[in-house]
Design a protein around this nucleic acid. Structure first.
Length: 351
DNA sequence: GAGCCGTGGTA
DNA sequence: TTACCAAGGCT
């Protein structure tokens, strides 16, 4: 017989009262929640992203755009550039769309899980998290931490992702009417600090006595399907420099790195056949190769330096960006790496 | 359901 | 170095 839901809830919340992580977007256990804007902003940033990575971005966004109306009025390019380096750039596009939708409704976030779920960028997890944390709604919050904790607690043998239905049902049965926000954050804190993916610290766990997975070997849960190997793609990016500035483009608004400022490239993202790159029709030399891992493929990007002087064929689809301010261009990481490589070459040549 | 979509830390 | 993985959402 499983431990009762109330036993588990009580043990978890008692643990949380003395072991909650202190985070910039969070209020201490048992105290009023932060403004919905802060809860929403942090939850979107935290999607598939670590608290350490999010913290500086959260602080910068909040300082620059203190309210959802401020963010709604922001320039698209400024928001994309401010998000640069955090990844999953569709989140930034949806963030802006969501801010504008909320501002259009008077600037107040909806208070129910269902209404939150209808906003851009809020899926099942984020809608439930904002409802529970910001509005004290008894919503079922399931993220990767909760999946792991629950899969171990009940020794769920069914592999992910098929096990999600079972895990959600267990989580829903555990979720309290009182302190639902603290409960959700407690589950996530437990997963982040005690019930970790590898080497869980069961000796410190408040739920150890109630955990079926501990007896069976906690690290085997959750069971996961095997992953596909990542392919390697090859591509080129182009460094065109003139009068102390480099030519940058803005990528199309959809797909990989959508809406982000970037170096011109040879459409490597669309090329999955591994075909050899054709020769370039002008004076170019290679500055080396940037290796970068994306979610579903690895990229070997050859950086080509333009060594000619005729830039007349460049159209209006880009901009000359001063090299002295290249770190403010808002380049995603793969192009920030390429820029560092190019600048290192330039400095070497100058010596 | 499965593919697409970033990045950096860790063992 | 390789492999895994983190407060997921959208199509």
């Amino acid at each position: 017989m499983d431990a009762s839901a109330e036993t588990i809830r009580s043990a978890l919340l008692t643990w949380y009262d003395s072991h909650a992580r202190s985070l910039p977007w969070r209020s201490p256990p048992g105290t009023p929640p932060p403004e919905p804007y802060r809860v929403w902003l942090s939850e979107v940033m935290l999607q598939q992203t670590t608290t350490v990575a999010v913290a500086p971005y959260f602080a910068r966004f909040l300082e620059r755009w203190p309210t959802v109306e401020d963010l709604a009025a922001a320039d698209d390019g400024d928001v994309m550039a401010a998000w640069a380096g955090l990844g999953y750039y569709a989140r930034a596009r949806n963030l802006l769309a969501c801010a504008r939708a909320v501002a259009a409704q008077g600037g107040a976030f909806p208070r129910t899980e269902a209404d939150l779920r209808a906003l851009p960028g809020l899926g099942a997890y984020t809608a439930a998290a904002v409802a529970a944390i910001a509005f004290d709604q008894s919503a079922t919050v399931v993220d990767a931490n909760v999946e792991r904790v629950v899969a171990r607690l009940f020794a769920i043998n069914q592999p992910l992702p098929a096990a999600r239905k079972t895990i959600r049902a267990h989580t829903e049965a555990l979720t309290p009417v009182e302190r639902p926000g603290d409960f959700a954050q407690a589950m996530m804190d437990l997963g982040a600090t005690i019930c970790t993916p590898r080497a869980p610290r069961c000796l410190l766990c408040p739920l150890a006595a109630m955990c079926a997975g501990r007896r069976a070997g906690p690290e085997q849960f959750p069971v996961k399907a095997a992953k596909k190997a990542k392919p390697v793609r090859q591509g080129r990016a182009f460094w065109i420099e003139r009068d102390g500035a480099v030519w940058l483009m803005t990528r199309p608004g959809q797909g990989l790195l959508g809406g982000m400022r970037a170096l011109p490239d040879d459409a490597w993202n669309a090329r999955r056949d591994g075909a050899a790159a054709p020769p370039l029709p002008g004076p170019w030399r290679s500055a080396g190769t940037v290796r970068h891992g994306f979610t579903h493929f690895d990229l070997e990007l050859q950086l080509m330096l333009y060594s000619g002087s005729d830039c007349s064929s460049l159209d209006g689809a880009g901009t000359w960006w001063p090299l002295g301010r290249i770190d403010t261009a808002g380049l995603p990481t793969v192009f920030a790496k390429a820029a560092r490589l190019a600048l290192a070459q330039t400095e070497y040549q100058g010596e």
